[in-house]
Amino acid sequence: MTGQPPAGIDTSRPHPARMYDWYLGGKDNYPVDEAMGRQMLTLDPRVPVMARVNRAFMHRATRWLAHQGVRQFLDVGTGIPTAPNLHQVAQEIAPDARVVYCDNDPIVLAHAAALLRGTDEGVTEYLQADARDPDAVLEGARKVLDLGRPVALSLIALLHFVPDDEGAHELVRRLVAALPSGSYLVVSHATADFTPRESAEAIGRLKAAGVTLALRSRAEFTRFFDGLELVGPGVEVPHHWHPELGDPVPGQDDGVIPGYGAVARKP
């Protein structure tokens, strides 16, 4: 990215959302993000594939939910817009779908207008709030969504940046508790289960650059769904979750992609 960064953006250290944008081939990142991204590639050259697989999981989960009749979506930790965005996937199936995006990153706010171009029948809004403050997220969401009707809560590639001691499980519990029966939780998450040596090195390099990475095991990931009903096939590596719904990613079957994805229903 060239020119002056938007106000509030720190370009002296890498940022996970901007690194993710770089992995996806976007232009909303800075040299510090590319430099750290290239370091990650030396540990595992499949990182860009992982980013695309994660994005494709979100697309498939959103399609599945829309086909189940879900018409309200709350996407927390939105990240930098990359088409197709969640509202485009949902509103292609259900033009009247209502979507609220939520992020605390100033660079996402700078691109919020791009997120708000939905269908005439539906609603697409952006909320500037931190996932670690679920009360603020819910307060903003209530202005657009009817929390008396089912909502799909999406936490895509977010929770592995929130350690347990910063309340990762509590924020999930509080968000889910505010949603009615018939709502859904969608989560994707990186893990060290398949690449322990490379993951340990990645955690160390990112920590030195000021980025916390809280990789969780399959059992630790599954805890986020306590009290909910997992949708088949349950907890899976992301590209094995309902692959028939489309969005295959070139290279996704080149070994196990080190992450998990799952969708669960609130009874």
Rank of each mutant, 00 (worst) to 15 (best):
230 L>E: 02
180 P>D: 06
253 D>L: 10
181 S>W: 02
233 P>V: 02
208 A>R: 15
154 S>Q: 06
28 D>T: 15
84 P>L: 05
108 V>N: 10
154 S>A: 08
251 G>A: 14
63 R>F: 03
31 P>V: 08
28 D>C: 11
15 H>N: 15
1 M>C: 09
24 L>A: 14
35 A>L: 11
37 G>W: 11
207 K>F: 12
114 A>D: 14
124 T>F: 09
211 V>Y: 02
162 V>Y: 05
239 H>M: 14
52 R>I: 03
246 G>K: 01
46 R>L: 07
18 R>M: 15
224 F>A: 10
67 H>F: 10
232 G>C: 01
172 V>G: 01
44 D>H: 04
167 G>R: 12
227 G>F: 11
104 N>Q: 13
51 A>Y: 07
111 H>Q: 15
209 A>E: 11
20 Y>L: 01
60 R>E: 09
240 H>L: 14
165 D>P: 02
184 Y>R: 06
118 G>Q: 12
250 P>H: 00
183 S>N: 00
193 D>N: 14
128 Q>I: 00
123 V>I: 15
32 V>A: 12
208 A>M: 12
109 L>G: 13
28 D>P: 00
160 H>Q: 00
77 G>K: 08
166 E>A: 13
192 A>K: 01
14 P>F: 11
4 Q>R: 14
199 S>A: 15
211 V>C: 03
130 D>L: 02
73 F>T: 07
206 L>I: 01
197 R>T: 15
67 H>G: 08
12 S>D: 14
144 V>H: 14
147 L>W: 06
252 Q>V: 10
89 V>M: 03
82 T>Q: 12
214 A>H: 06
138 L>I: 13
197 R>A: 15
217 S>R: 07
112 A>P: 08
71 R>W: 00
65 L>V: 06
144 V>G: 02
241 W>Y: 06
12 S>K: 13
11 T>E: 10
104 N>F: 09
182 G>T: 13
30 Y>C: 10
239 H>I: 01
234 G>S: 01
152 A>P: 00
146 D>L: 10
226 D>E: 15
69 G>L: 07
262 A>F: 02
232 G>H: 07
261 G>E: 02
177 A>W: 02
115 L>I: 07
107 I>F: 15
